[in-house]
Structure formats: structure tokens, C-alpha cells
């Protein structure tokens, strides 16, 4: 139970940064950002999806992008991947203009909802697609690639499941398969679009375990997420986005009523308890 004293509605104490102004996430991140978005604008069809977004992703950083539906979270990932053209500003990778060839060091895990789960394909076949950048044409997998494939499968607890159809796995294992595909390209950065969407608590726990393990090996991770409590509990850095950058910082700092009101255009209740931050919805009508 949350003590009444811990409930600080309207808490303004967090670090609400003006758009475009960024606090350095930690002293451990120095040098040149891995990815830098400089006042980036992008459209989805004819609708502006991102406006003047400036953001730095440091090598080894782990961050979540949160915001409402249509707030530009997926668009932001897609602009980094050059799937959506930038209409304004620019994106740099290690200080240089992002090129198609740079994408080889960026892994991408799409929303699982976009996958055709009836497609006749096994776990091993999906993960092996990650070799694509090293082996685009006819050649089959060599001995080194086979060893690497087994290593990745072991790392993600998928040993022995290689010949299973992807539909025969749990939600967490399915997410691990697509993570495995991204890992085979030896990425410096992995982008995940709503990796916990539709997963139960156990599967979400599996996913965050894998992500932390990958992040500890030095790979930067950027995810989009809807579950603010999950982000607050597990991630060190959060970015609030609603077409524009609203705020960024440590979750316990940025997840306050003012920032969340600006991000979601709605009232939320923020509780602080025992070093944790918890976000709840404010009911529309009083309980009877």
C-alpha cells in the first residue's frame, strides 16, 4: 500500500527539460554520441509526426521512449532506420551523417503484432536472417556462422528450439527470437518497437532480463513503450515524446504529473514509494 505522504500529485520536482535541451544521462557516457538527432522533423503521410526533435543516444545507453498513440515513437525509430525520410534537421551517427551503410550496425526488432505467425518459418530460420548483411546472396551458412547462431540461441535461452515453428513459443521466447536476429549483425544499437506489448508479466520479465544482459555487453538499446510503470521499474532513462520532445531524464525525475500531462494531455497520479515511482490513472468519476 502507498502511504498518503508518498503521494505527491502535481510533483514538479523532476527534471523537466525544455525541448532540445538535454541533461547528460550519466558521467559514464562521454565522447561522441552514437546517434544524434538534431532538430529532426518527419511526416507520416501528410501528417507531421515529429517536430524539432533533438536527442542523443550514447554508446551503451538504455532508454525508453514513451508517449501517446500517434505521438511519433515508432516514427522516431523509423527515421533513425531511414525507413521514413527526415523532412527537417539531420541524424548523425558517431558525429557523421547517418548513411544506409551505417544501418548495418543498428539492429531493429519490430512490433510482434506486425509478424505473420502463420508463415512457415522456424526459430533458426528467423534468427539466421540476421546474417543478411554478411551474406546477401546465394552462399549457405559457414561453420563460423553456425557457431555464432548457436551462441546467440544459447544466450537467449533458445537452445533446442531451433526447429520449432515461431508460433510454438511463448511471448518472451518470440521476442527473444527477433532479438537474436538483431544480435547476429553485431549491432552497436538495437531499436525495439514496443517489445513488451501484449506480453504477460512473466514474458515481460524474460524480455527485460535479455535486454539488460545485452545492454551490459555494451550495446545501446532504445525501446518504445506504453507501460510507464514497467519503464520506471526497469529502465535508467526515459524520453517523453508527443511529436515534440517533452522531457527526458531518469524515470523518477521525468515521470511527474506536469510532464505526463504535457505528454498525454491527461491527468495522471504519480506515487513515490520506497524509491519507486508508480503512475496511475485518475478515474473520471468518483467511486460509489
Amino acid at each position: 500500500m502507498v502511504d498518503a505522504h508518498d503521494h505527491r500529485p502535481g510533483d514538479q520536482a523532476g527534471s523537466l527539460h525544455p525541448p532540445g535541451v538535454e541533461e547528460h544521462p550519466s558521467a559514464e557516457f562521454t565522447g561522441v554520441p552514437l546517434i544524434e538527432l538534431c532538430e529532426v522533423g518527419a511526416n507520416y503521410g501528410d501528417t507531421p509526426a515529429l517536430q524539432d526533435v533533438s536527442l542523443k543516444v550514447w554508446p551503451g545507453q538504455f532508454m525508453a521512449i514513451v508517449g501517446p498513440n500517434g505521438g511519433g515513437k515508432t516514427t522516431l525509430l523509423r527515421t533513425i532506420l531511414k525507413m521514413i525520410p527526415v523532412t527537417r534537421g539531420e541524424i548523425l551517427m558517431r558525429g557523421e551523417k547517418l548513411r544506409k551503410s551505417s544501418l548495418e550496425r543498428i539492429g531493429y526488432v519490430p512490433q510482434l503484432e506486425t509478424i505473420d505467425w502463420n508463415f512457415p518459418i522456424t526459430v533458426e530460420e528467423v534468427i539466421s536472417m540476421g546474417f543478411f548483411n554478411n551474406n546477401r546472396w546465394f552462399r549457405g551458412a559457414g561453420p563460423e556462422e553456425k557457431v555464432k547462431l548457436q551462441d546467440v540461441m544459447t544466450r537467449l535461452n533458445l537452445t533446442g528450439l531451433g526447429s520449432r515453428h515461431i508460433r510454438e513459443l511463448s511471448g518472451g521466447q518470440q521476442q527473444a527470437v527477433f532479438l537474436g536476429r538483431a544480435l547476429l549483425g553485431d549491432p552497436q544499437l538495437i531499436l525495439l518497437d514496443e517489445p513488451t506489448s501484449g506480453l504477460d508479466i512473466r514474458s515481460r520479465d524474460d524480455v527485460i532480463h535479455f535486454l539488460h544482459e545485452i545492454n551490459h555487453s555494451g550495446v545501446a538499446i532504445v525501446i518504445t513503450a506504453h507501460d510507464l510503470n514497467w519503464v520506471a521499474a526497469h529502465l535508467p532513462w526515459a524520453v517523453c515524446l508527443n511529436r515534440r520532445m517533452i522531457a527526458q531524464g531518469r524515470p523518477h525525475q521525468v515521470f511527474n504529473a506536469a510532464v505526463l500531462r504535457d505528454t498525454y494531455s491527461g491527468e495522471m497520479v504519480v506515487f513515490h514509494h520506497d524509491g519507486m515511482v508508480m503512475i496511475g490513472e485518475r478515474p473520471h468519476a468518483p467511486h460509489t
Partner: peptide
């Protein structure tokens, strides 16, 4: 390989 990517995961194909 290209066709498998395009067929199974068209969204990600261009990112690769």
C-alpha cells in the same frame, strides 16, 4: 534471402 525478408518481414527489409 532478399525475397524471404521481403515476404516474411517487409517492414524490416528496408532497414537491412
Amino acid at each position: 534471402r532478399q525475397l524471404l525478408f521481403l515476404t516474411f518481414d517487409p517492414e524490416v527489409a528496408s532497414a537491412y
